[in-house]
Amino acid sequence: MDLLIDISLLTFLAVTAIGIIRITNLFAVIMLFAIFSFLSATLFMTMDAVDVALTEAAVGAGISTVLMLATLALNKDHNEKQPDKNRHWLPLAVVLTTGAVLVYGTLDLPDFGDPASAPQTHVAPHYIEKAIEETGVPNIVTAVLASYRGFDTLGEVVVIFTAGIAVLLLLGGRREDPLDDGAKDKRVPQNLVLRIVSKIVIPVIMLFALYVQFHGDYGPGGGFQAGVIMSAAIILYSLVFGLGAAERIIPKSVLMFLTSLGVLIFAGVGIASLFLGGNYLNYSVLASSQVAGQHIGILLVELGVGITVFAVMLTIFFAFAGRERS
């Protein structure tokens, strides 16, 4: 059964990829990108990487679809383009060569799930055997991400933080009247149904984001996914009620504050553990017992990740969606 599902999903993936190349309507292509992300997320899921699958579904299918659409909105030209009649042999040769080299490279990779391969023999056995005992967190992925590899995760959060700052610097210059929404667009269809449905759905999405955030110790999920889902709720609000309305709920100054707050919480936990006599980001010293300390540390760190990811995603979306068409 698993084999059948895998084969079907991989076939769909290949067909979707070909479709993305062949179809000339950019809206449909972006939707196909979302399908592509869904399919790869489902494949991750069948390979038991549920946390990765959640991230791929939320970021790949959700946020990047919306951002690509926002980019498309900045372009004047929505028309379908006829494909170029000229044949480009050089790019084809480059692509084929690169592909062949990559495929050749995969021959040296260990088999999927090979117990003798390098990733399975160094630190992984320790994590798998000791994670619950040392951190008290049933979801090993969270334990590795937030505790054992906390320093790497801090780096990732800082990367996201930097990306948010960079987008603000590049696209921050915006139109004068963000609050002046509506009134100018008379031809819009009546979307009463969407409005009411969104009002029912948005609180559910937010609640679910909080569940993913705080249940990440026990099930799939964590700060990254929760931040993205939470920002998706605000983005849905902004799509249905207008950018001005969304910016009135979460002003830009609050977003900038939250962006830094998340990183500050993460780094602050590290400093706190330094002062309490441990190494940087060693949560064991935060409470009387090791497991309790780890628990507090992981919770705080995930919260920091969630806040920063949420704020940066929204910052990027507002920056993209708020620009006038050039």
């Binding site: 008379k186 009546q190 409005r195 902004s238 249905v240 207008g242 309305a245 993209f320 969606a321």
Partner: peptide, 12 residues
């Protein structure tokens, strides 16, 4: 239906 993301999806 709008070609942009600024305005709300509705008339006032």
């Amino acid at each position: 239906s709008h070609k942009d993301f600024h305005s709300p999806a509705e008339n006032n």
